[in-house]
Design a binder for these strands. Structure first.
Lengths: 155, 155
DNA sequence: GCGAACGTTCAGAATTTTCTGAATGCGGAC
DNA sequence: GTCCGCATTCAGAAAATTCTGAACGTTCGC
């Protein structure tokens, strides 16, 4: 273990990396905050203070990560604030969610196959469609395999 | 087959879908143009005209898709222009590339594990690290399986 | 009920990303 | 060697995204 400063630096670095990889910046920062905390749960106020951003930004970012299924509200007995924490399996959930767009792409490609007559373009479209169909089928089992492998040591 | 208009509509729709899924807009439009054409190859001029955008935009977008490994320059005998076409296996390549950020995330998380002392946060970080390591190992074999399954019918 | 604390919403500001268009570079034809 | 046509680069404009901060609800304690 190193100092608290190091922890924050590592958290911010991960947030930046996730943001570069396509996640919204504030969502990534909030997520990193949850990931790196030893607290049971965090409130919007905690996040606002810890990240040095406005309550409004936190509100939006929290809504996003909750909607993504990465963070959940936790019942807050005896507190007026809303408490949140990371969900278990957050990462496999995230990975699964990243594949939601596959459905949309698949639909768009299928439309292309309908519209385009025989020829090279159509062959390409069929190939693409097959690939995305394949993915759509394989990803869940991929995640499941990880869960099972992990399942024994951390339920 | 339907009219040429339908084809363009389908191409633009796919481009928009890919853009929504995180790809840069112009890159997606260029890619869709390659995907939907029956021409052997396209030049920057073709793309510029077809998409109704400036040569500068095309240049940047083409550079991107080439660098992504989705499109390649094709020798242009007897023509001063540069010719490009989609590469075979473009989609599995794209999918593989989408996982390049995994390396970065993995590095960032590993740093977190080093920095954080025992506790819930560290457990979470270890879980995340394991998941991304698992992915990094599985994705190539996933793609390979698709290629093999497809290999017979389209070499 | 009343007051206070907290979260949310939304219009506007700031930042970042993306596109354009003119200048520049490059390669082949003559 | 010079010219011509196309591609690229890059500074600046345009557009989209993201953050803030003040106003508004809501919920709980009293």
């Amino acid at each position: 273990m190193t100092g608290e400063t190091e922890r924050k630096r590592a958290a911010e670095h991960l947030a930046l990396t996730l943001a570069t990889a396509g996640m919204q910046r504030m969502g990534a920062r909030v997520l990193a905050a949850f990931l790196f905390t030893d607290e049971e749960s965090l409130t919007a106020g905690d996040l606002s203070e810890q990240l040095g951003v406005s309550a409004g930004s936190v509100s939006g970012a929290v809504r996003m990560v909750v909607q993504m299924g990465l963070v959940e509200r936790v019942p807050a007995p005896g507190s007026r604030r809303e408490h949140y924490r990371m969900r278990d399996r957050a990462w496999s959930t995230l990975y699964g969610r990243q594949h939601a767009p596959i459905d949309d792409v698949l639909t768009a490609v299928a439309r292309g196959v309908e519209v385009v007559g025989p020829g090279p373009a159509r062959e390409r479209l069929v190939y693409m469609r097959d690939f995305y169909e394949f993915l759509l089928g394989e990803v869940p089992s991929l995640i499941e395999r990880f869960e099972q492998r992990r399942g024994g040591s951390r339920p």
